[in-house]
Amino acid sequence: MRPRLLRLIVSFHTTTAAMAMERYCLENAVPGRLIPIPREITAGCGMAWSAPPEEKDTVLRAAEGGEIEIAGTYVLEI
C-alpha cells in the first residue's frame, strides 16, 4: 500500500453533520476532505474529515463556526 501519512481525523455522529462540515469547509477554504472513517476510530462505516495535522485549530474552529457537532478528533497515521 501507499506510505502512511499523519492526518488529523474528525469524526461525526451522522452523515448530516459530515455533510455540514464539508459544506462549511468548502465555503470557507478550510483544508481537508471527507474520507471513509479509518478502522482505528471505529470498525463501523461512515465518513470523517481528514486534514493535515497542523490545520487542527483551523478545522476545529470551522466545526465550531458551523455549529457542527463532532464525535471525536484524532491524529493518526493512515
Binding site: T15, T16, G44, G46, E69
Partner: peptide, 16 residues
C-alpha cells in the same frame, strides 16, 4: 444508517 455499523441499536442522533 451508514454509521456505527456494529452498534446493536439505531444511532440516537437526529436525523439518523
Amino acid at each position: 444508517s451508514g454509521v456505527h455499523s456494529y452498534d446493536r441499536r439505531q444511532p440516537s442522533a437526529y436525523p439518523t
